[in-house]
C-alpha cells in the first residue's frame, strides 16, 4: 500500500508551517539586532549605562538607560511585593476556606480582571488613582501609581497559577495530615506550600515578565520623567514607556538606542522564561 498523494504532501506542509512559526522569534531577534547594531557600534554598550543622562536626539546625544532600567525593576518589584500576598491569600481562600460556590464566583471575578486590557487599567489609574495620590503627595503620577496599577494587573496571573498549583496537590496529603490532627495553618505552611513550590515559582516568574514588559499602564500613570527615583512618589519612566514615547520621532542613533532597550527587555524576559522552564523541570 502506498500513501495517498494527500499524505505525501501533508507532513512536509505541516513541518514547513512549524518551521515558520518557530522562525518568528528568530526573525524578531534578528531585526532587533540589525536595528540596534548601528547604535551599539556608534555609542558602545558601556555608554548605555555610564552616560551622564538620556538626551538621545541631536549630534552629541547621551544614552544612559540605567535610570529607566531601575524604574522598570522598581515598579516590577513593588508590584510583586504587593500582589504576591493578595494572590496567595486568594488562592488559599479558594481551596481551603471558601465553599464550592464562593470559590467559583471568586475565580470568575479574577478571570474578569485577567480580561481587562492594560490600556483600561492605565486609564483607570490615570483618572482615579493618580489624583488620589496627588492629594497624598504631589505630583501623583509616580512610581507608586505604577506599582498599584501593576499590582492589580499581575494579580490574576499570580493567583491562577497558585490556584493550579494547589489543585495539583494529591488528596492523600490532606487525609494523612487530618489523621495526624494537623491544624489548617500547619497543613498550609508545611504541606501545601512546600508541595506547590514549583508552581508558585513559575507563576512568580511569569508575572515578573508581565510586569517588566508592561507598557501602556505604566506609561499612563508613572509620569515619565527620566530619573532614578528617591522615593515611591517620584515620577519615573520605564524602558517600555520610553520606547512608546519616543519611537514616533526617533531617528538614527536615537532609534537604534530604542532598539537596544528593546533587546535589554528581551534579555530580561528570556532569562525569566528559561528560569521558569528550569523550575518546572525540577521535581517538586
Amino acid at each position: 500500500m502506498f500513501p495517498s498523494r494527500g499524505d505525501r504532501l501533508l507532513l512536509p506542509g505541516l513541518r514547513t508551517a512549524a518551521l515558520l512559526t518557530g522562525g518568528v522569534v528568530v526573525l524578531l531577534l534578528a531585526f532587533l539586532i540589525v536595528e540596534a547594531w548601528p547604535g551599539l557600534r556608534a555609542v558602545g554598550l558601556t555608554r548605555f549605562f555610564t552616560d551622564p543622562s538620556w538626551h538621545p536626539a541631536g549630534e552629541e546625544g547621551t544614552f544612559n538607560l540605567a535610570p529607566m532600567l531601575v524604574g522598570t525593576l522598581a515598579a516590577a518589584a513593588g508590584a510583586l511585593a504587593f500582589s504576591s500576598p493578595l494572590a496567595l491569600g486568594s488562592a488559599l481562600f479558594c481551596h481551603y476556606f471558601a465553599g464550592q460556590a464562593q470559590a467559583t464566583l471568586y475565580r470568575r471575578l479574577i478571570e474578569v480582571l485577567a480580561g481587562v486590557p492594560s490600556v483600561v487599567y492605565g486609564f483607570w489609574g490615570l483618572v482615579v488613582l493618580v489624583p488620589l495620590i496627588r492629594r497624598l503627595e504631589p505630583p501623583g503620577a509616580s512610581l507608586f501609581a505604577g506599582i498599584l496599577v501593576l499590582t492589580i494587573m499581575i494579580l490574576p496571573t499570580l493567583m491562577l497559577s497558585a490556584d493550579a498549583a494547589f489543585a495539583a496537590i494529591p488528596e492523600d496529603y490532606f487525609k494523612a495530615a487530618a489523621a495526624l490532627g494537623l491544624s489548617r495553618p500547619a497543613v498550609i505552611a508545611h504541606v501545601v506550600l512546600p508541595a506547590s513550590r514549583g508552581g508558585l515559582a513559575t507563576g512568580l516568574m511569569l508575572s515578573t515578565g508581565r510586569a517588566v514588559g508592561e507598557t501602556m499602564a505604566v506609561l499612563m500613570v508613572c509620569g515619565n520623567v527620566v530619573q532614578t527615583p528617591d522615593s515611591l512618589f517620584d515620577p519615573i519612566r520605564t524602558l517600555t514607556a520610553n520606547i512608546a514615547l519616543e519611537m514616533a520621532y526617533a531617528l538614527g542613533d536615537h532609534r537604534a538606542a530604542l532598539f537596544v532597550s528593546g533587546l535589554v527587555l528581551m534579555g530580561l524576559v528570556i532569562a525569566l522564561v528559561l528560569a521558569a522552564a528550569t523550575v518546572v523541570r525540577e521535581p517538586a
Binding site: G213, I243, A244, L265, V269, I270
Partner: peptide
C-alpha cells in the same frame, strides 16, 4: 509568548 508587546511593536 513572553516577549513584551512593545517589543513586538518595535519588530
Amino acid at each position: 509568548a513572553g516577549v513584551p508587546s512593545i517589543v513586538f511593536g518595535l519588530f
